[in-house]
Design a protein around this nucleic acid. Sequence first.
DNA 1: TTCCAGAGTA
DNA 2: TACTCCGGAA
Length: 222
Amino acid sequence: MVVSEISQKKKMRFRKTLLAWYQEHGRDLPWRKTDDPYHVLVSEIMLQQTQVDRVIPKYREFLEKYPDIKTLAEAPQEDITATWKPLGYNIRPVRLHSIAREVQETYGGKIPDTPEDLEKLKGIGKYTAGAVSCFGYRKPVPLVDTNVDRVLQRVFFGNPASQTTKEDKVVWELARALVPKKNAYDYNQALMDFGAIVCTARKPLCLLCPMQAFCSAYPVSS
DNA sequence: TTCCAGAGTA
DNA sequence: TACTCCGGAA
């Protein structure tokens, strides 16, 4: 199964079902100011491999101390690293600091809005680049994290536990083909929430899932 | 043990 | 592609 072989009908059905689910069950991230790319950047770096419940208090503390990218760029690295703890993966505050400095120097203090430019910054990979571009600037770009990866693999390729597991590249291609140009922000947020709430890694809620009629993995045995 | 809103390195 | 970084929950 290749991305180009997937019917437009299934893609449309997927998008429609996802957004309908999101209107009812979606949880936005009210703790995050999504109209400020700097806030999105900080939160997304914190969220790398780290649960949201642990991020929220630290995110608040961090932004109180470093309210904008200029303040962060000029702060001593030891302070930033100390503030970061105990979130873990302690190379992240070092890289976030270097990102802030580079944005100041190279981009005049404005965080880039395209995934291509964002990925040039060390510490920002494919996912975070997409997230900052979409959630910070509302660009219609794809983004794939482990939740999205799992949802797309199941719905379009079957249970990833089977041999049909697709490479990263294929999933990104599919994600790109699926992002709507209009409300990519809601779509991507919905996709991630759906993976976190319904299409979970363990014990997915297949019996409550609105996609069971066209999901290639339904029902996932757990 | 495995997994969770990953990314860099070899 | 595999390994490492980190902490906490299931």
